[in-house]
Amino acid sequence: MGYAINESDTLYAIKFRLVKDIKSIQIGKLGPFDFPRGYYVYVGSAKRNIKARIDRHLKVDKKKRWHIDYLRPYLSVESVQSFPESDGECQLFQRLKLEHNADMPAKGFGSSDCYCYSHLFFFEIKS
């Protein structure tokens, strides 16, 4: 999949689509979670080489290192967008979550290095 990012940006949001409900996926040490069908947006940061970080997240077959690695095999990639660090990762997540009127399906997902509830949000596929 091709995508355009600004190499000087340090923040990113990857939008995925899950086409059917998935029950009880083990997300590393966080535990099992259910994921309803819909759109998911994962927000992250990379202080160096944002393109390499995003490329890794887009791969399906890899050693599981981040929470998104456990969910990735079930998801199709919709879009990738990069952002400057001006807001910060947590603020970017909150802003995008509010814009989409979204829910957070998994406490602690992608947010083990901050106090946020999650860095993964979900919104339904409109039929």
Rank of each mutant, 00 (worst) to 15 (best):
E124P: 15
L120D: 01
S127M: 04
S112D: 06
I50D: 09
Y117V: 12
K63W: 03
Y42V: 07
Y115M: 00
H100F: 03
R53Y: 13
S127R: 14
R65Y: 10
L18D: 07
S76R: 12
G28T: 09
V19E: 15
G28C: 09
F109L: 01
Q81T: 15
K64D: 03
E78N: 07
A106C: 15
N6F: 02
H67T: 03
L75D: 09
K23C: 08
W66N: 05
N6G: 00
S45E: 05
L75N: 09
E78T: 09
I54S: 05
R53H: 13
E89I: 06
I125V: 09
S127I: 07
I14P: 00
A52P: 11
K47I: 10
F122L: 02
E7H: 09
K97L: 06
Y40K: 12
S118V: 03
Q81I: 14
F93A: 11
W66R: 11
L11R: 02
E85A: 14
I25Q: 14
R53W: 12
V80I: 08
G38A: 04
D21C: 12
I5T: 07
L92A: 06
V80T: 03
G31R: 12
Y39I: 01
K97W: 01
I25E: 14
E85T: 05
L71G: 07
I125P: 02
R65S: 11
G38E: 03
L58D: 05
H57T: 03
L58E: 04
I27L: 06
A102Q: 06
S118P: 12
V19S: 14
A106M: 05
Y39W: 09
Y117D: 13
R65V: 14
A4P: 00
K20Q: 14
L120A: 03
K23D: 15
K15Y: 00
E78F: 00
A4Y: 03
E78M: 10
Q26N: 12
G108V: 08
C114I: 04
L96R: 12
F35C: 07
S8Y: 13
L30G: 04
